[in-house]
Design a protein around this nucleic acid. Structure first.
Lengths: 221, 221
DNA sequence: TTAAAAACTTGACCGGCATCAAGAAATAAA
DNA sequence: TTTATTTCTTGATGCCGGTCAAGTTTTTAA
């Protein structure tokens, strides 16, 4: 089955040899989730490293008032669960498959043994942490200091830049995008309409968006 | 000089022997900053691990619109700069001493050599990352989904809990606290007055606050 | 101790955006 | 396909909290 090769999808194992990857494959567990299914909840013990072998997973938190905050959108090859692997913590987030998803997991002790054996893994994990920290710092600053309009404009230009195209389909539904940007679906609709009226974007059928003027979009305050 | 012992203040070196600490001391550089002085700016190259030997440092970002976001308040023994030590990135944050501060720094290549030599350091750094990620995830969720009132109430109860006392002095000025909580000094003043009118806290001279009803405070929406 | 500067408080105003509601569109199921 | 369900859009309304301003208190400097 294809997802048995999930280990080689993951950048943190990229410097290992084929036979070493085989060793890891043997300690990996495979799971399949349907769209909408919960992978883990905030109360769960945190003793697994999770690898998305195929699919899409949203990781989110719930605030005290019950509102949802989308933190990460995991794609094939992304990992999660490392954050607190090194402390005796509980999870603080929820994870839910957005589409049918294959996941591999490695138990905490197995992963720690791997890090002992292959020091390059630690370095890679530190890289992942660093990137994620940098991203979260930006997100915090952005939600706390910029308008919804500016955050949405940023999201659109960044997504276009990442995909290297000016026409793309929004990868998630507006409700999820809203919780990611710290706003509501209604406001996203309104702002997209506004951008279109300003000629900055064009909305096409099926959540497809074409960016007409990325420079001007970025000037949104 | 006392700050020559900064290395032993730092948890990431806590499992090393005395003679190993001596080795590290030799590669460490010492700096002193006055209150208000800038330690580094966002444009600076990121090639130093920074250790606060004595004092207090605020780490913040500037949004596109010029507004400030306080990310971390570093105390004696805290480190910073590791986030992107493992990628060839530039800094994205600014750091400024809030009081007269002694800082030790270790160059990137020296630190990486240390991690090679003493694997326990990598594990410790992973710990620091994990804690910081968890904290930032909470901060993002909080600023994006909860009211200013709730965020301030949380901050007060958490600070009290951390200091294990119900009467404490706000460690930073309101302007900085405002950028930390994603609000303004005026709103903080108003909300503190509100809490006092509700009997939840008592404000005393010199930014000293006494928490009268932490349970009720946490119920603030 | 006194003077100057910085930080804080309170008031008035108002705009951005959340909320509620109802209809339209798109997606999924039958 | 047709139907049912979910998602999206648009309008009306209200409030949280930001901004500007002026006075007060605290802190710093002389």
């Amino acid at each position: 089955m294809a997802n048995h090769e999930c280990v080689q999808l993951v950048p943190i194992f990229s410097e290992l040899e084929a036979d070493q990857l085989d060793t890891i494959e043997k300690i990996v567990r495979h799971h399949h989730y349907q769209a909408g299914e919960t992978l883990f909840s905030a109360a769960d013990a945190l003793d697994q490293l999770m690898i998305v072998a195929n699919g899409q997973v949203k990781v989110y938190q719930l605030a005290a008032n019950g509102r949802e905050q989308l933190l990460y959108l995991l794609q094939t090859g992304d990992i999660d669960g490392e954050a607190a692997l090194f402390e005796n913590q509980q999870r603080t987030s929820f994870a839910e498959a957005l589409v049918p998803t294959d996941v591999c997991s490695i138990r905490r002790e197995d992963f720690q043994a791997l890090m002992q054996q292959y020091p390059s893994i630690s370095i890679k994990v530190l890289n992942v942490f660093g990137k994620r920290l940098t991203q979260l710092e930006r997100q915090t600053t952005s939600t706390a200091t910029e308008s919804v309009e500016a955050r949405l404009a940023n999201y659109l230009t960044e997504t276009a830049a990442a995909l290297k195209t000016d026409t793309f389909k929004l990868p998630i539904k507006k409700k999820d995008l809203a919780t990611f940007l710290g706003t509501t679906p209604e406001t996203i609709s309104r702002k997209l309409t506004l951008f279109e009226q300003q000629g900055l974007i064009t909305q096409q059928a099926g959540k497809v968006i074409k960016i007409n003027d990325a420079d001007q979009l970025l000037l949104t305050e």
